[in-house]
Write a protein that binds this DNA or RNA. Structure first.
Length: 697
DNA sequence: ATCCCTCGAGTTCA
DNA sequence: CTCGAGGGAT
């Protein structure tokens, strides 16, 4: 994507490879930060940074330690499981250590894991027809527990603790309806006298929201996530509190030997005794099936009521799993394959300045590429200089990034603990980084004061040809840049005087593609009045206000031509404009100023000469949805813009944000956060079918 | 003067 | 999608 990246007089940070000394220092800082957060996480259930971001820090430390094995310290957080138990609860010694899993973040790491495992075993994993090779489970983000049953009665429940010694939480676990207090033989498998099983306690997102609302009312701190809530609930001294929270549990492991042959069978046995097991779990015959399972759930994770952060892949054959043994904190025969995290840490390599069509100077962070929610992030806007100050983000900083609404990259936090001292603060520009003009402050925004600034002009042209304006297909940013470079155009109206030969002059343009562009320009000359007004790029006039202006002009009954439109808006009084809906003094002033500007008059003159054919709005459709207000979310089979038009033709209004006034939310595939909000507000949901029916009437 | 709602503008990646 | 700010209601 061609963009105007302008470095604002700051040297780009050198991306030299970290030498060992630096790696050592970095590792030390990472360990300190990781240890600090780990204590908060495991012992107090109150992390300062998100679990997913925490994972990426841990991962970075592991990478350094792998590269320089002699830097590995015995007490490194990469070598430890969990935290230290608190003193409040009775300690419980586990009959066998409760391990955690090693993490993998890519297919490659899974392949390496399998290769390591097979090398250790000295043979390939058997591919038996009747018995799958792997078992895949959803990795629920909760609290691992161990349950001990004596004569079929729940006798003790404990947390993992440090893996060897946990805490007795029997009273609290007994309140969980999905943990059976009694079990009995329902199928082929007899219940042993003493039975030890393991599983996970968790809580749904919905329940978290509900409890956090209560916490807020009581003036208490909300829980950061479902895992902390689940863990916090188990640490309550009064079991009534745990009982009032709708906790859930799945079991996934039988520690006692009851003759189980495979992990898959363990789940069948658990179910036969009346335990709750996760029915989404699935066996896999090959790594390909493992990858498919993971990819499927990476997409579907939002649909689950509970939080999962990956899958666990286990060697299905119990004998082989046992033979593979334990190394460090986890078994060799299993691995956690984490999803692409919703949050990750990365490094701000640079902060560059962009100048938009209205002259606004926007600082944008260039990031070391990192995967977040399935895509690689390289840039994140910082919006304005107040935001930089608020975050205190500097070039070279390690930051936590996410994608707001799972789409737009966003820096949410700086980790100052990881600073080396070489970070550089951003210098607030005194001059426009593109043309050196004076910079003026407008609210929180900085603006380049020169309307003919190259960046402003370029972005105005891009706006002019964009879909909701003139909608010239095939004319993208790159081509606009080339046309400007070659001096073939200098403003938006010049596009209409381009000839076939002009475009063929450009590099890599043949007869055919040049012809297509000319045709697309020609086609765009038929344009609705509001699209035309929007294309002009009048400050404060977006698609909505452009429609208001269209109505205003149509009402005047003046015959339709660019000259008349120009004259109308030049002569109309400020009061006349302000009488219209949603136009106040500031917007009115802005419109008058635009039409009075000699530079803009020149453009209008050129456009008039170019035989632009303005189209009056048609009003033959019946206003079946008169006065209704809609919001659209998700992907529909037709473009949103079209749906919006269809609804508006019928007298409805379509807006982007939800409020109580909205009559219905139109929901497509993969809806965003709006669906939830609409349900909270009690707004009617329409799927595409419903919409079609309503449109037919 | 103050709140709420809506619009404009800027932004990312596949 | 989010932020900031304009417009309008109160």
């Amino acid at each position: 994507m061609a963009r105007l990246w302008v470095v604002c007089g700051i040297n780009e940070l050198k991306k030299e490879r970290m030498d060992k000394k630096e790696a050592e220092k970095r590792a030390a800082r990472l360990r300190k930060l990781i240890d600090y957060n780990r204590t908060l996480y495991h012992t107090f259930d109150a992390p300062e940074i998100d679990d997913a971001a925490f994972d990426t820090l841990k991962n970075e430390l592991e990478e350094i330690e792998n590269k320089y094995p002699d830097l590995v310290k015995k007490d490194s957080p990469t070598q430890k499981i969990g935290g230290t138990p608190l003193d409040v609860f009775v300690k419980v010694q586990h009959s066998q250590p409760m391990h955690s899993f090693f993490d993998a973040f890519s297919r490659e790491e899974i392949e390496q894991w399998l290769a390591r495992l097979e090398k250790y075993l000295g043979h390939k994993l058997p591919q038996k027809k009747q018995q799958p090779t792997f078992y895949c489970e959803l990795k629920i983000d909760g609290l691992a527990i161990e349950l001990v049953y004596k004569e079929g009665v729940l006798a003790q429940a404990s947390t993992r603790g440090d893996g060897l010694v946990g805490e007795d939480i029997t009273q609290n676990v007994k309140t969980i309806t999905t943990v059976p207090n009694h079990i009995e033989q329902l199928g082929a498998y007899p219940v042993p006298k003493t039975l030890v099983v393991r599983g996970e306690i968790f809580i749904t997102q919905k329940e978290l929201d509900r409890i956090n609302k209560e916490q807020e009312k009581k003036g208490q701190k909300p829980y950061a996530n479902t895992r902390n809530l689940a863990a916090g609930s188990m640490r309550q001294l009064d079991p009534a509190i745990a009982a009032a929270r709708n906790l859930q549990s799945f079991q996934y492991d039988i520690v006692t030997n009851v003759g189980q042959k495979t992990h898959e069978e363990q789940h069948r046995i658990l179910a036969s005794w009346g335990f709750f097991i996760n029915t989404h779990n699935k066996s896999a015959n090959s790594l390909k099936e493992v990858f498919d399972f993971r990819d499927e759930w990476q997409k579907k994770r939002e649909k689950l009521e509970y939080e999962i952060d990956g899958i666990v892949v286990i060697v299905n054959d119990d004998a082989i799993f046992k033979a593979a043994g334990i190394v460090g904190k986890g078994p060799r025969g299993a691995i956690a394959y984490k999803f692409s995290p919703r949050q990750a840490t990365t490094i701000v390599e640079n902060i560059v300045m962009q100048v938009g069509r209205s002259g606004v100077i926007t600082p944008v962070a260039t990031l070391r590429p990192v995967e977040v929610s399935g895509v690689t992030i390289q840039h994140a806007t910082l919006h304005n200089f107040d935001e930089i100050e608020r975050l205190d983000v500097r070039m070279g900083d390690t930051v936590i990034v996410t994608r707001s609404g799972d789409v737009i990259p966003k820096i949410i936090q700086v980790l100052p603990e990881l600073r080396s001292g070489k970070e550089k603060k951003v210098v607030i520009p005194k001059k426009c980084p593109v043309d050196g003009s004076v910079v003026v402050k407008d609210g929180v925004l900085l603006k380049c004061s020169n309307p003919s600034c190259g960046a402003q002009n370029r972005n105005r042209i891009i706006h002019f040809v964009s879909r909701s304006a003139f909608g010239m297909e095939g004319l993208g940013e790159k081509i606009i840049d080339r046309l400007l470079d070659e001096g073939l155009i200098s403003d938006s109206a010049d596009i209409f005087s381009l000839a076939l030969g002009d475009i063929k002059v450009l590099d890599r343009f043949g007869e055919k593609s040049a012809h297509n562009i000319i045709e697309s320009i020609e086609k765009s000359k038929k344009i609705k009045i509001h699209s035309f007004l929007y294309a002009l790029g009048i400050p404060h006039v977006g698609q909505e206000t452009a429609k208001t202006l269209e109505k205003l002009f149509v009402k005047s009954k003046i015959s339709l031509s660019i000259n008349n439109v120009e004259e109308f808006f030049e002569k109309v009084s400020l009061e006349g404009l302000q009488n219209a809906q949603d136009i106040g003094p500031i917007i009115a002033q802005s419109i008058k100023e635009w039409f009075g500007d000699p530079q803009n008059k020149k453009i209008l003159k050129k456009l008039a000469d170019a035989q632009i054919a303005l189209q009056a709005p048609q009003k033959n459709t019946k206003k079946t949805l008169e006065g209704m207000i809609f919001v659209i979310t998700g992907t529909l089979s037709i473009p949103r813009q079209r749906i919006k038009e269809m609804l508006e033709e019928r007298g409805a209004h379509v807006q982007t944000s939800l409020s109580e006034n909205v009559d219905a939310l139109i929901v497509g595939q993969n809806p965003g956060s709006k669906e939830k909000k609409a349900q909270q507000l009690g707004i009617v949901l329409w799927d595409e079918k419903t919409l079609q029916q309503k449109l037919k009437k």
